[in-house]
Design a protein around this nucleic acid. Structure first.
Length: 582
RNA sequence: GGUUCGGUAGCUCAGCUGGUUAGAGCGCAUGACUCAUAAUCAUGAGGUCGGGAGUUCAAGUCUCCCCCGAACCA
């Protein structure tokens, strides 16, 4: 059911890899901004579908499972639940959080492979690869270790040397051995793999990228860089058992590929579609995914926006489009994408082993999700890498959330409770202070919405804060506590306006700090229907109505302290525990 | 190494197609207020916009060189 002016917006955030809980940087660079954006657009009344999933295939998952002494399946089941829980803890409002190991993705991946082969974009090629005689199998890149031919580092991985950082081909390693068994009984043998002929799509992709004028500079320049260097044909299969089987169009296993599966980079982006199908089944409407993805079945009016870290831009702007466009089928292509830089830990890298940085699960043990959500949105790594520091975090939370917003709600609701029986007062006429406040809203709310539309998250947070701050300024101008002494009705106007502002502040806070917003709105008894930012409610007849929207006489309850301040000794303790000051 | 992006008040950052006295938040100082989580509000101090050269009537904003930082290179 669509209403006039309602848009259909598909949002995806880069799929977190299954291998372990993500840290705050991962959260800040794709899942969180995607969530904030999805929430905003839902509040505007649009039809939003926000899809994410765990990316489960590939060598790292196999190795991690092996290290944990578990089967890959069981390992992924466990890790998926952990990541799902962490997402819920952070109130990430996925419509569905799927799994790339699901049957939907397998079927879609195989479908794309069949179609691409029929289009002449996939072919079998013979290549040389390291075979482990003792393990009885070919070894994919990271399963081979040996001495780096460039720097003589003795524990170089097959794909890359951790010492000198150079990319390697496993067959070039000196004294190679199997990372699976440690066996040195290995040799180079010929084997066959499927190759995606990206080079054939070079011109088509370039044309598509060049017409995508709205992309941010970061994304465009990365895509064009790849195109300038020339798209290379890449193997899309690997010698693993954990992955999507390589099939013939009739569903049987392709001859010679019994021990091979599609490589993770080929099947992972397909999971955007796969997870949508999972959603569709889970919600009892098995074909609903099609009108989000098939432009011949209703997806032509969908706006598709992808969120990702900068490392993923090439896959989203070049690799995946090769699959989609190359299929010549009417699949939905991305319209807008938002790429982020990294959140660093005091300027350095997050590191599990060195105990540097906070991971999603640990963060929630320390403080509520809203605190992190606010800081990471207000300081999103948009223009460049952004450093997380405890000191900056503390300053931001205490000032923005506790002092500016929390204290505002607290002061006005408590004053109302003590002087006006906890009811929205009805007396008094508005004056200069209220007119000033209206003019603030007239300029600031449209700006706020524009920042969100542009996906400028720092600016959106800053504008949100500025509106909260204007509320405090308003109270200084209205000074109901002074007027109360001589003219109770005049004070009533200030209290009524202040309460309405608190409600508005809660409403605009929802995308970033949903839980605190809910506490405010619940305390003020705002019905669900009135918590939106829809154009027919906000500003349609001017902004003055927002200051007298609550029913007169409505009973309100001062909420508990919304945000507890972060104390210096907490900062000290956390710096100790999680590292800091690089 | 190549490419890209950055280097603006103590800190974190805004500054669109070049044009009045370079802005915000935090921090700091002073004042005001007392409804409030010692919160809030006002005012103020602080910058030769990384360095150098050039284009222009005019450059943080364009060009070139250099220094520093970050990222990407399948």
């Amino acid at each position: 059911m669509t209403t006039p002016g309602q848009r259909r917006i598909l949002v995806t955030s880069a799929l977190p890899y299954i291998n372990g809980v993500k840290h705050l940087g991962n959260l800040a660079g794709s899942m969180l901004p995607a969530d904030v954006y999805a929430r905003f657009q839902r509040l505007r009344g649009h039809d939003v579908l926000y899809i994410c999933a765990t990316d489960e295939h590939g060598t790292p998952a196999e190795l991690a499972a092996q290290a944990a002494g578990m089967s890959v399946r069981a390992y992924c089941d466990e890790q998926h639940e952990i990541q799902k829980k962490a997402g819920e803890g952070f109130e990430l409002s996925y419509d569905y959080f799927g799994r790339s190991s699901g049957e939907e993705n397998a079927r879609l991946t195989q479908h794309f492979a069949h179609v691409l082969e029929a289009e002449g974009l996939i072919e079998e090629r013979v290549m040389e690869q390291v075979y482990s005689i003792d393990d009885g199998r070919f070894l994919p890149d990271r399963y081979v270790e040996g001495t780096c031919p460039h720097c003589d580092f003795e524990k170089a991985r097959g794909d890359q040397c951790d010492n000198c950082g150079r990319l390697l081909d496993p067959v070039d390693l000196i004294d190679p051995y199997s990372a699976v068994s440690g066996s040195k009984n290995v040799e180079v043998r010929e084997t066959r793999h499927l190759f995606l002929l990206q080079s054939k799509m070079q011109d088509t992709i370039r044309q598509w990228v060049e017409q995508s004028k709205d992309w941010p500079q970061l994304a465009r320049s990365i895509a064009l860089k790849w195109l300038d260097e020339g798209l290379r044909d890449r193997a899309i299969t690997r010698d693993l058992s954990w992955g999507v089987p390589v099939t013939n169009p009739d569903g049987s296993i392709r001859e010679g590929f019994e021990k091979k599966v599609f490589y993770v980079w080929f099947d992972a982006p397909v999971e955007y579609i796969g997870a949508t199908e999972e959603w569709s089944k889970a919600t009892g409407q098995p074909d609903a995914w099609r009108n989000w993805w098939r432009t011949d079945e209703g997806a032509d009016n969908v706006e598709y926006i992808q969120f990702m870290g900068k490392d993923n831009v090439a896959f989203h702007t070049v690799s995946f489009p090769v699959t989609i466009i190359g299929s010549k089928e009417p699949w939905k292509l991305v319209d807008q994408l938002k790429a982020f830089n990294w959140v660093t830990w005091y300027g350095g890298k997050f590191s599990t082993s060195n105990k540097r940085g906070v991971f999603m699960d640990q963060a929630l043990d320390l403080l509520p999700a809203d605190y992190w959500r606010w800081y990471l949105t207000a300081n999103a790594p948009e223009g460049s890498d952004a450093a997380f520091t405890w000191e900056g975090f503390q300053a931001s939370i205490n000032s923005d959330l506790a002092n500016v917003l929390g204290n505002f709600v607290n002061r006005i609701t408590k004053y109302c409770a003590s002087k006006f029986d906890g009811q929205v007062p009805s007396a008094g006429e508005t004056g200069e202070a209220e007119a000033w406040m209206v003019s603030e809203l007239e300029t600031r709310l449209p700006q706020l919405f524009e920042h969100y539309e542009n996906m400028d998250f720092r600016k959106a947070a800053a504008e949100t804060r500025a509106i909260w701050a204007a509320g405090n300024e308003y109270l200084t101008k209205a000074e109901p506590w002074v007027k109360y002494k001589s003219d109770v009705d005049a004070a009533a106007v200030g209290v009524r306006t202040g309460l309405n502002l608190a409600a508005l502040f809660g409403i605009i806070a929802q995308p970033i700090i949903p839980k605190a917003a809910r506490m405010i709105l619940d305390a003020l008894g705002i019905p669900e229907d009135n918590r939106t930012l829809r154009a027919d409610r906000i500003g349609r007849d001017g902004y003055g109505g927002l200051l007298d929207a609550l029913p007169h006489g409505l009973a309100i309850t001062p909420p508990d302290v919304l945000f507890r301040k972060i104390e210096d000794d907490q900062v000290t303790a956390w710096t100790e525990q999680f590292g800091g000051e690089s």
